[in-house]
Design a protein around this nucleic acid. Sequence first.
DNA 1: TCTAATTGATAACCCATAGTTATTAATTAT
DNA 2: ATAATTAATAACTATGGGTTATCAATTAGA
Lengths: 292, 292
Amino acid sequence: MGYQLELRHFTYFLAVAEELHFRKAAERLFISQPGLSRQIKQMEEIIGAELFIRNKRNVSLTVAGEYLKNEIAYIFNHIDFTVKQTALIDKGSEGEIRIGFLGSAIQTVIPELLVKVDKENPKIQFSLEEMSNYDQVKAIVSDQLDFGFVRLARVPDGVCIKAVQTDTFSLVLPKDHQLDEYNFKNVAQVSSEHFVLFSSDYSSIYYDKIMSICEDQGFTPIVSHKSVHAQTIFKLVESGLGVAIVPTSLQYGFDLNVKFLEIPNIPQRAELSVIWKEDNRNPALEKVRRFL
Amino acid sequence: MGYQLELRHFTYFLAVAEELHFRKAAERLFISQPGLSRQIKQMEEIIGAELFIRNKRNVSLTVAGEYLKNEIAYIFNHIDFTVKQTALIDKGSEGEIRIGFLGSAIQTVIPELLVKVDKENPKIQFSLEEMSNYDQVKAIVSDQLDFGFVRLARVPDGVCIKAVQTDTFSLVLPKDHQLDEYNFKNVAQVSSEHFVLFSSDYSSIYYDKIMSICEDQGFTPIVSHKSVHAQTIFKLVESGLGVAIVPTSLQYGFDLNVKFLEIPNIPQRAELSVIWKEDNRNPALEKVRRFL
DNA sequence: TCTAATTGATAACCCATAGTTATTAATTAT
DNA sequence: ATAATTAATAACTATGGGTTATCAATTAGA
């Protein structure tokens, strides 16, 4: 009775929810098992819900517990960020913006954005991390990221999306390939060659678009290799292991022995979008969003 | 030092931030002023930021403190909501019910059920997915599904089953077929025609029953096509690729050029059953089961 | 079928620390 | 000056989080 929920309870709950084992969770928390059991029991009484099902041999989460687990993970992330942000503000910085991006966005869009924001808000700090579409969405939702640069058509509820760059596609060939800017007409000319593509789990819309470019020309590409990094793809092309189709803007910033031939007369475009969470509480976010 | 932030600190901080007066805030919190002062000081040390400016006569928030005040108010709201939501889910008046179904159940049974449950528990959400009998049983057992609408005679141990609808069978013919409600007597009249049936792996009991209807009339149907979707079967019949035998209730909800003739004087019935797992822990399940 | 090992829950004790009272130092009002 | 405020300090108290010891229930192995 009369007890109060504390972050301690949340910490303990998360440990048990992850281990699904009281003794192991207690070990991880450097406390004794009975102490942990009692805290969890107290927590269940305070909340008024059964969080775990213990049947002497197995521990599992109830539906309510499953829900709480996700929420607490979010709450901890948010508190962590808030505390750090408070310390930063205290020291005169105006906070930190955490940005995730697909490798293909770092060439042009992000540097431009950073320069613009920095000019007007020199005290905002940035952290940049290359991540897949999927990981970025997850990180945005759980408040571990403020902005993501992705190639996606749809995002979950509560996440905003805005296209920031539309790019044509180019065919990437080894430097000594017989096709050049004069005799290149369409991709059907390489229909018999092997293709090196971005992995579909890295960016599925990307993968699908490239497949549709080929299908529109009446052939299905023979895919020999897949990779998540543009650099790797170029290396493979350079080594003669296949040809590739990538957004045209990727031709800048790499120093490789391949040639880019922009594919003419096709409707497909590589669209880069920014995503962020509608109710993100980072005060620095607004300063960045104005530039998008 | 090794101290840890707790919600207590947040509560105290908010009181001081609102009162801007340590003694009054302490009074409001029913604790003594020195205790409050010490907790706030500790909090500032943990976070690593000055939150208040005290100059012996006035207390005011720093910029960092101002930021933190807003965030903490939000965090408390979010925690409050989460805790209440968790209790609600535990009691079963919220949450999600995952339902799987054979295509033939979506016409009448499921909509009726959803309306009834929604009326008494508007906060329960549903997710619906069309699946084969086999996949539903698998999903129920592995706790990925709460209810399944199947046509099965037997289910594994631990899975409950209850019939919810008994239906007669109808012969499905192209609109211009010579048989009609007046001259149709029994299925032997179409014994020489080709049949379009549900795939046996989609619902084997279904398949067997249709075979037995024919066998009772002294012939074995020539099966030309099999499909898992009623829509597809009707299309095939409409195109003259065969006749079909399906549960009578399927005649509603499709807009196709076929005619249904209920088969008279046969014992076979298409039985639709609900299945669920005996020890399913989803508390919302009980609220739905009452309507079955 | 018995024993050994492992699980989480209970009970009783201990001690860290939140909260206490008493006091001080600094400021303002009279 | 003096009285009346303020928040901070110091020393003490006691709540309750964490401890050890043990139990009851279950499973694995002999």
